[in-house]
Design a binder for these strands. Structure first.
Lengths: 199, 199
DNA sequence: CCTACCGATCGGTAGG
DNA sequence: CCTACCGATCGGTAGG
């Protein structure tokens, strides 16, 4: 056995660091995620942790990317199975609600939390968070537009407004689950979505 | 002049500390608010700042109270002029939207930010944040119920659901303003409120 | 990947 | 309200 780690082992370590990081940052925020704490929980030295990323900011960006992979697998992927337009929009909303109810990230939606943490701090992390939300909003709007054009939504439906409303419902759900631990919130969110999308 | 500050002067100092604290915490969060930074910006010593509150947690609670005074003056007070039920609910929503558009707190809604920061950290600060939201929700629900009972909302309107939806719209607005700097968001929020409350 | 270290900053205290 | 200080922890670096 050579004392040097193989590339595969290094990748495994990096992946383990990111898993832990997502768990910590989900509860404590991306700033609350500290190198020292990561090192302690992973039984590594601080420099061992930092060596994989270089700086804390690079670590934060990598954590965002890992969280995005989870979000895509949980929310975007299920919707690919459904037909474009209203059916897909419904699956998207249901997957989104379910992802929050099941607390896939124990601290609630990773991106909503990161948005609040970084919206007042210019820099690459803020830019990355904003880009993810912009992509998500564009996707919601596209499906809403398709649904409206297909005649599956009331005439005069505005895709922008609908995407805005759906985003708000999900934020209210996230808030109710995380702050109030309200077990009824999922029910409310589903009723509100149904009022918008029927079904 | 006695070297000791009078009670009035001490209150003035305390008030100045809280004003600065609200400004800092609004942008950086209640944890990002540090004694050292406050001391620097106020040209005081750290112990001089801390002496007014005892601990950082006590300072955070005092800051929340000060922020609540602002919120009440901005959003609750205007609504008292309006008749109970639908008229008051409309004024409440408009004041709420306006408060976010004008960025009364430069970092967006103080309580939404605090909720995200503390929902995973049990303790007095978290409890205080939750209590403010519970009071706000109760108020929204009460006016929604009155409006429904007066027949000013479509029959079958659920006050709980309506309060949930309105809260979501405001959160989406807060997010759009703070993260996306979207100048159209206030317009979207008003249209969504109008779709719910008419007018 | 490690040990050993850096300067800066944290909340808080002692004593006046 | 101050100075002077405490132990802990921060992100990061040097050198191996």
């Amino acid at each position: 056995m050579s004392p040097r780690r193989s590339a595969a082992e290094a990748l495994g370590t990096r992946s383990a660091i990111l898993d832990r990081s997502v768990a910590i940052a989900s509860a404590e925020g991306l700033e609350g995620l500290t190198i020292g704490r990561l090192a302690l929980e992973l039984d590594m030295s601080k420099s061992g942790v930092l060596g994989h990323f270089g700086t804390k900011e690079a670590l934060q960006l990598a954590v965002l990317e890992r969280a995005d992979e989870v979000f895509r697998a949980e929310v975007w992927e299920p919707a690919r199975q459904a037909a474009p337009g209203l059916p897909r929009l419904r699956v998207l909303c249901e997957a989104w609600i379910s992802y929050l109810e099941r607390e896939v990230f124990p601290g609630g939606c990773f991106f909503v939390a990161a948005a609040h943490e970084f919206d007042g701090r210019p820099g690459p992390v803020r830019d990355a968070v904003e880009a993810r939300f912009a992509a998500w909003r564009a996707r919601l709007r596209k499906e809403a537009r398709r649904a409206a054009e297909a005649g599956d939504l009331p005439s005069g439906t505005d895709a922008d407004l609908l995407a805005f409303e759906l985003t708000g419902l999900v934020m209210a759900l996230n808030h109710a689950v995380q702050l109030h631990r309200d077990p009824e919130a999922g029910h409310l969110a589903r009723r509100a979505v149904r009022a918008r999308l029927g079904g």
